[in-house]
Design a protein around this nucleic acid. Structure first.
Length: 270
DNA sequence: ACGCACCCCTGTGCGC
DNA sequence: TGCGCACAGGGGTGCG
């Protein structure tokens, strides 16, 4: 489920539990998620102190004082459970701190991943090296997007889902941002005018910022006894609203493009 | 190089 | 109530 805002929210929540803490237990409960877990995961984390946490695109980063960074991806169904009452079937990896806090990476579909690398090599990490800019950074603007889309014949929606164009967007927020900017999801990417790209960039930043702010409010839940992270009900404008009325009054449609649902308003977006 | 279909995995919700 | 199917917010791989 998680896109950038959910990962950001997750990282914020984990930060409040892990930052500055000594790891006394790092326990893989199966040998693989999407890929095999690094065999030295337990050894590299046990006894290390968490220095800081961060995010790159949809990846969460947990830095330790051993010049390591634990990199997690939540895939489609991943979440960190905080101080769980008991360990469940799909809790695949567990961290415990010296102060007795426990976080468990739960991911029933196992599309998520866990890796640990030298923190000096983050930029060169195989999944980061080709990535586009962070959408919320100043490095992401209409000019940069226009250059990235130059000559690209694919639909704008596909381009926005491509992490090498801009990093961290998923299906929900792409649908929402395209609606907000009034752009047809199947418009040829390179044919979109600069003013419209500018609107698109603004819409992307807006929708992500709003979602992070909403996620921030769920951090209270994070502190709850069985505190679960990252899932918050959202009122989307088009996503998941096939057959409902758009704010303009027309019928919201759904189409499937290469296996992914696209929700859009044919009147607002053309 | 690019665009796209497919696949990994499990769970859920729906129609019949 | 049970069964089978469609679908799920990610993204790497391999094909044309």
């Amino acid at each position: 489920m998680p896109e950038l805002p959910e990962v950001e929210t997750t990282v914020s929540g984990l930060r409040s539990v892990l930052e500055g803490e000594l790891i006394v237990r790092a326990e893989p409960r199966r040998a693989d998620l999407r890929w095999p877990l690094p065999p030295d995961l337990r050894q590299r984390l046990t006894g290390a102190r968490v220095e800081s946490l961060g995010r790159r695109a949809k990846y969460g980063l947990i830095y330790t004082d051993r010049q390591d960074v634990l990199i997690f991806h939540l895939g489609m169904s991943g979440r960190w459970r905080v101080d769980p009452a008991e360990i469940e079937k799909h809790d695949h990896f567990i961290l415990e701190t010296a102060s007795g806090r426990v976080v468990a990476l739960n991911d029933h579909r196992r599309f998520g991943s866990l890796d640990i690398i030298d923190s000096q090599q983050v930029d060169e990490y195989r999944f980061f090296a080709q990535m586009g800019p962070e959408p919320l950074s100043e490095a992401f603007d209409a000019s940069v997007l226009q250059k990235a889309l130059f000559g690209r014949k694919a639909p704008i929606k596909a381009m926005l889902l491509n992490q090498n164009i801009v990093a961290g967007l998923g299906n929900i927020y792409v649908c929402e941002a395209l609606h907000m900017a009034g752009i047809d999801p199947i418009a040829v990417a390179s044919s979109i005018s600069k003013p419209r790209l500018n609107r698109l960039v603004i819409a992307i930043k807006e929708v992500l910022t709003a979602a992070i702010a909403a996620g921030g409010s769920t951090l209270r839940d994070f502190a709850a006894p069985d505190g679960e992270l990252g899932y918050f009900a959202k009122d989307w404008r088009v996503y998941g609203r096939e057959g409902e009325a758009c704010i303009c009054g027309s019928n919201i449609l759904r189409r499937v493009d290469s296996g992914r649902s696209t929700f859009y308003c044919p009147k607002c977006q053309r």
